[in-house]
Nucleic acid binder design. Structure first.
Lengths: 350, 350
DNA sequence: CCCCAAGATGTGTACGTTACCGCATTTGCG
DNA sequence: CGCAAATGCGGTAACGTACACATCTTGGGG
């Protein structure tokens, strides 16, 4: 096995073309084309013969010729919360999307970008409608407001290509997904704190009221793993939509009344707000937002978990691009790895 | 900025073609073509006029038409140590290469794969020569044996596309690089152990004799960071090419004579061999080889640092593919992020 | 002054696929 | 049986680029 030739397609010095296929089948290229595109008007006999040849010789359309001939430009719509929301979490995703948009531009693929207010269903619906105005050949979206977006997506033509990112959403419409596993992320946080504090000491968990599946799953994962690793969990109860400053005081009080806590897990990007509240307290948070990066660099946060948002945006778009341009199967799912971020490997992840 | 259109090229409803360019310049497409490919035989006047138009209107060749017309298939050679060497470290890289080869196959790009014995310079030279037999349009290689490969690469035509992966090598020939930063990796290991053991306790470092820049840099990074974080380092001196089992005993003795050690860093994939040698000893190692993954799952290793070998192989090939197929700039460099691997995020990284 | 080389430019064809047109043949139906 | 509609099939013009070749222009040597 020292030497190998890797082609990924059936071996054939000169790739099989439509013309050759037509010659082999004793028909014209028009007939082969009709079989390939299932446009009908071909006798059962010829259809069988051609399909047999295709299966046997492994015909694959030449993507260059195909795209050149088809000639049309594609447009992909992208829908997600405004970049500035959630402590800038979305801006990294947008960056990845813009990067991939540039990468796909030479393939005549244009990206339409539309942000919405994640706390405003009407704005979300407006943005969706705006995006769908032709031309629009595919959609990548973060289904944060699933009650609004669910019915809208289900109303699309069944073969309309859709990819979700960040959050998955149950819906009838077939779709791809690019995101991470929040439950595992919570478990990872538990493991990190367990490594960083003496065995058996209790760990703190900050809860949030928001109706956010990610936060919920992360907390769940954290608790399950802590229990398995022998660390009791003390959770700060949820407060509904308290302002940041107030919430900060609340966490400070919580830590004062529980001095036995050796570590604290904040399952979202807010973690930067709670740095330095307890002396010697190990702090694990989520997301590479600017304030968090700063806090990590200065040692006010010990570790961060990241879901590589830039890659997420880029991959979502790449999936759609490859589907539109090269007919690759779409209902594909990508689970991004969970990054453990420390000051030393920060640079490579920005 | 709620709505954006992202195209990455100059706005123009119908993309600028050679034909249109010729019309604007008042010449034929042949003349434009000669200017584009710098084939000469065009008057200074026309050259200037056409180049002006290209700069002004931002002409980009249609990649599909370009590739279709050029018509030829490309062949890329890949050269690296045999998969089974280094505890299977290379097999993950090979896997990434095979994946990318499949992905690039529809673009008429064929990959020739050639493994060599990393301890045998003659075998390496043989493999290199074998690979270069036409057709061969580009080369991706792991320059492990730089004394052998350096001169060979420098002897290639100056515009022959070359990408190094895993290790970089100083050489005259322009080349891309895909790899990681071993110094930072060592620093990361220091940070991880510092988090996992009480402040100020000494940390152990296993040295290896091999003439391997990666190992050397990792050790250096580890020592520098430990010093900054206030942990003394006790290093096990190098032993030249001791067999695995003997080396294992040596490490065991080392740990017995240094019971004060709270953690141990093994800067390569051998780490699995040294699991469970000291009770309560925190163990940090390198690379997601099968034995290491197993040891991590079973808790015999606490943490692993990985350089995402599969991605490395894939990206090296992708770089060359994009260069050959779409004329993207080649002397590009990709530094892969350092992964901190724990049982909880293991799955996503395999 | 003519001829030829070299320079400058235009023309034509090929790449493989797509989509449409038109001709022949068959089918359906009153 | 006749005529329209449907079916089966071949032919061909794009798509934009690359490149070989034909054509036309110029200048210098004989």
């Amino acid at each position: 096995m020292a030497r190998g030739r890797i082609t990924g397609r059936n071996e054939a010095l000169a790739p099989l073309t439509i013309k050759e296929l037509a010659r082999l089948a004793g028909v014209s290229i028009g007939t082969v084309d009709r079989v390939l595109h299932q446009r009908g008007r071909v006798s059962a006999e010829n259809t069988a013969k051609i399909e047999g040849l295709i299966a046997e010789r492994g015909y694959k359309a030449n993507v260059f010729a195909s795209r050149l001939s088809a000639g049309r430009a594609y447009t992909v719509g992208v829908l997600m919360p405004r970049s500035e929301q959630d402590f800038g979490y979305w801006s990294a995703i947008e960056k990845g999307i813009r990067r991939m948009a540039t990468e796909l531009a030479p393939f005549q693929l244009t990206v339409h970008y539309q942000g919405f207010d994640r706390y405003d269903g009407a704005d979300c619906a407006r943005a969706f409608a705006e995006l769908l105005r032709p031309p629009c050949d595919a959609l990548a979206l973060a289904p944060i407001l699933n009650r609004v977006l669910g019915p809208l997506v289900d109303a699309l033509p069944p073969d309309f290509p859709v990819v979700f990112f960040d959050t998955d959403m149950k819906c009838e419409h077939p779709h791809g997904f690019v995101g991470q596993d929040p439950f595992l992320g919570g478990q990872l946080a538990a493991r990190l704190l367990a490594l960083a504090v003496p065995a058996g000491l209790p760990l703190g968990l900050v809860r949030f009221e928001e109706d956010d599946q990610h936060l919920f799953q992360r907390a769940l994962g954290f608790e399950s793993r802590c229990s398995a690793l022998g660390h009791p969990v003390i959770a700060l109860p949820q407060t509904f939509a308290a302002p940041v400053e107030e919430r900060r005081l609340e966490v400070a009080r919580f830590l004062l009344t529980h001095p036995q806590l050796a570590g604290l897990f904040v399952p979202n990007a807010n973690v930067g707000e709670y740095a330095r509240l307890g002396p010697g307290l190990r702090l694990v948070g989520y997301d590479l937002t600017d304030p968090n990066v700063q806090a990590l660099r200065e040692g006010r946060i010990d570790m961060l978990i990241s879901q590589r948002p830039e890659t997420m945006g880029a991959e979502a778009l790449r999936l759609l691009g490859r589907h539109l341009l090269f007919h690759e199967a779409l209902p594909a799912s990508i689970t991004l790895p969970l990054d453990v971020v420390l000051p030393e490997n920060l640079e490579g992840l920005l």
